[in-house]
């Protein structure tokens, strides 16, 4: 959805004004993010409710590998920095740096997702499957949704780099980069919450 939201630039008001002086796309993106708060809120609440309910399989505090997750959290946090540098390069019309930072952001994101895949497989080996317990189901659902969001972000970043190379980005390039940046940072702040509530606070 985010993809469609950002790639779309309205033209109906062409030559007309915009009542608030703000860009339609950016307003739309912020609203989408506001709405996503309710989505992740629901998933986090479900996890909070169910994290202690372990009929079989490992307990949360037994299975989490805090040092490992700390590193991948750090990676995602730093990808926010590279993203904001890409946005700032785009606003300066510094295309070379923009591309560079976008690619680095995507790579950091991919590292995070790779870490998550590794984490999931090792949890699975230790006996925590999707259906093992309510803790397992809600944990995989929450972090899985987050992982999907990161992956969608990576696809958007790569698409952005590719389309930029062929000069196929419709509309204002700096704005498109900024919008994808907003999405990316949002995914990062969701992880800030998940990292604390899920990993650091034991059940």
């Amino acid at each position: 959805m985010a993809e469609t939201a950002i790639s779309h630039d309205h033209d109906a008001s062409h030559g007309a004004h915009s009542s608030t002086g703000l860009s339609n796309n950016k307003l739309g993106m912020w609203m989408f993010l506001g709405s996503e708060c309710l989505l992740f809120g629901g998933l986090i609440s479900t996890y909070m409710l169910y994290k202690g309910r372990v009929n079989s399989g490992p307990q949360p505090n037994k299975i989490f590998d805090i040092p490992f997750t700390s590193v991948s959290s750090f990676v995602l946090l730093m990808s926010s920095l590279t993203m904001v540098l890409a946005v700032s390069a785009a606003q300066r019309k510094d295309e070379r740096n923009m591309n560079l930072w976008l690619i680095i952001t995507a790579l950091l994101g991919a590292t995070f997702v790779g870490g998550q895949v590794y984490e999931f497989t090792s949890f699975y080996r230790e006996g925590l499957g999707f259906t093992t317990s309510l803790f397992g189901s809600s944990f995989y659902t929450l972090t899985g949704f987050h992982g999907v969001h990161v992956s969608v972000g990576i696809i958007m970043l790569m698409a952005l780099v590719g389309m930029n190379r062929n000069n196929r980005i419709p509309g204002d390039r700096a704005e498109v980069v900024e919008l994808i940046g907003l999405y990316w940072h949002f995914v990062d702040i969701v992880w800030i919450v998940i990292f604390t509530l899920v990993y650091l606070i034991p059940s």
Binding site: T20, G21, L22, K26, L27, W30, M31, L33, G34, S35, E36, C37, L38, F40, G41, S80, L81, M83, V84, G181, L182, H185, F186, D188, I189, I192, V193
Partner: peptide, 29 residues
């Protein structure tokens, strides 16, 4: 959370309407 939102996502420097939209969703949640 607030740091990333305010500085990386520019909310601190941007139009207040964005802040209202986002934080109304967040606070409601």
């Amino acid at each position: 959370f607030v740091t990333v939102v305010s500085y990386f996502m520019h909310l601190k420097f941007d139009n207040k309407l964005f802040t209202y939209l986002f934080y109304s969703g967040l606070i409601l949640a």
